[in-house]
Amino acid sequence: MQFDSFSDFIAMGGYGFYVWLSFGTCAAILLGILISSLNDKKRIFKAVADQLIREERIKKAKQEQNS
């Protein structure tokens, strides 16, 4: 589809409101998924690091008990 001007492109043949609303909604949802995924990744990495620290602490305590 070819447009004569930028305003015709924005209007999208009279359907511009719906077209741009759907693009905006899709972009917002994708951005929300990205942010959520990054937060989950950070939370999981922290949980794993905390678990490793706990396991090391337990291992040390058992070694001290046996000594």
Rank of each mutant, 00 (worst) to 15 (best):
Q51T: 10
E55C: 00
F23A: 06
K46C: 04
I33L: 14
Y15S: 11
A27I: 12
G24Q: 02
S37H: 02
S5M: 05
K42F: 07
I44R: 06
E56G: 02
A27H: 02
F23H: 07
D8M: 02
Y18A: 12
I29M: 08
I35V: 15
D40G: 01
F6W: 15
Q63H: 06
L30V: 09
L21M: 13
M1F: 10
S67P: 00
F9A: 04
A28W: 03
R43Q: 14
D50M: 09
Q63T: 03
L34I: 10
Q65N: 09
K46P: 00
K62I: 12
I58T: 09
Q63C: 03
N66C: 03
A61W: 04
L38N: 09
I10T: 04
G14Y: 06
A61H: 02
S36R: 06
A27M: 09
K62N: 14
S36F: 11
A61L: 14
L30P: 01
K59A: 14
K41T: 12
K62M: 14
A27G: 05
Q51I: 05
N39S: 10
I10W: 13
I58L: 14
L31E: 11
L34Y: 13
D40A: 11
L52C: 08
E56C: 05
C26L: 15
T25Q: 05
G24R: 01
K41G: 04
E64Y: 07
S67C: 05
S22A: 13
M1G: 12
T25M: 11
F45Y: 09
N66K: 10
D40M: 08
S22F: 10
E64S: 09
V48Q: 11
I10E: 11
Q2Y: 06
A61K: 13
G32H: 03
G14K: 04
R57G: 00
Q63Y: 07
K59G: 04
I53W: 12
G32W: 03
K62Y: 12
V19A: 04
S37Y: 02
V19D: 00
D8C: 06
W20D: 02
E55G: 00
L30Y: 08
S37I: 02
Q51G: 03
E55D: 15
S37P: 00
W20Q: 02
R54S: 12
E64Q: 13
I44S: 01
I44P: 00
M12T: 01
N66V: 05
Y18G: 06
